[in-house]
Design a protein around this nucleic acid. Sequence first.
DNA 1: ACCTATACGGAACACGGTTCCGGTTTCAAG
DNA 2: CTTGAAACCGGAACCGTGTTCCGTATAGGT
Lengths: 193, 193
Amino acid sequence: MAGTGSGSGAPRKQRADSRRNEEALLEAAAAAFVTSGVDAPVRDIAARAGVGVGTIYRHFPTRADLIVAVYRHQVEACAEAGPALLAESATPHAALASWIDLFVDFLVTKHGLAEAMRSDDAAFQTLHTYFLDRLVPVCAQLLDAAATAGEIIPDMDALVLMHGIGNLCIGADSPSYDARLMVGLVIAGLRLR
Amino acid sequence: MAGTGSGSGAPRKQRADSRRNEEALLEAAAAAFVTSGVDAPVRDIAARAGVGVGTIYRHFPTRADLIVAVYRHQVEACAEAGPALLAESATPHAALASWIDLFVDFLVTKHGLAEAMRSDDAAFQTLHTYFLDRLVPVCAQLLDAAATAGEIIPDMDALVLMHGIGNLCIGADSPSYDARLMVGLVIAGLRLR
DNA sequence: ACCTATACGGAACACGGTTCCGGTTTCAAG
DNA sequence: CTTGAAACCGGAACCGTGTTCCGTATAGGT
């Protein structure tokens, strides 16, 4: 029974070609996202990976699933940086500022990601859920530490803050705009005077 | 030769039916924008106005032209409120806060307008140009007055600020978000401490 | 009443996402 | 090695949008 794997419920393992295609797709998507943003046409991604469009939908039912798969590592890294920064920074407020900087860095280097983040399209629900579930608690922890230290206003909602910062990063590559400056203003506005 | 008006350049006046259609379109578009946002399908707007899609494109080559035509009055009113607020408010900072509140009010009540504002699509160039040409100088004047009074940081770029505030208003109707709170944070961040 | 510049309507086209199904491939059992 | 079927693949077909184009209708001057 506890043999090579064909237990009671599992009918069969994932086929090798399936796994190959999935990885080819991830690589192709990552490349396409860099050149055309996260809105890269499905057909383009499929062509790059050398598969049919059907294969994309089979592995990643919605675009959000694909985006999450591509950026999972980076989101994970960002989430883990939160507690670390809190431990090594001079003050909780400094840690908060550094962490948000990290988050902004992540967003502005992915064309169209910030836009996708705020879409209320049902297909992007997955993206919302993943990003927020993973990052909001970290942000909340930082906010709480800073509030307890009396550095910032109390009761700031982490979800609202992250949502807003995401919005501010939209169109960050425009020469006539400066997302970091605006985010800086928000951080400053958080401070108790 | 110098008869009823057919001068040297103008071949003929705009036909009456053309003008009627243009007004029907404006009305239909305004209604459609309320129910479906500024992204309302072209065919829907045409159907509401009882005209063909060709007629829309003839009168308003790009969607931005239509949007501008529909909201011109309100933008005008907002622009004119700037100097008025500056004159009647207790301090320049108060005037700035009130004016931005007005602007935010305008944006959040038009589904999708904030999104459209930040689109870098060439078709929305007209919208950018009009809104910014009209409102940025007003904002700049308010910022300048407040800076001169020593209430806020100097050299804040009005264009960047408006761009950022526009971004913050995206998705303002989501129950889990609060655009006004975020804008308030920005205004607070502007203050000298 | 006639004539033509002007304007109209909607069919046709372009494009991107999404679905679906006939053919192919993998894998394990014999 | 052979074989059978479940798993998987590819891309044609479909749908909803924006956009263009041209034959037809009409306003308004003469």
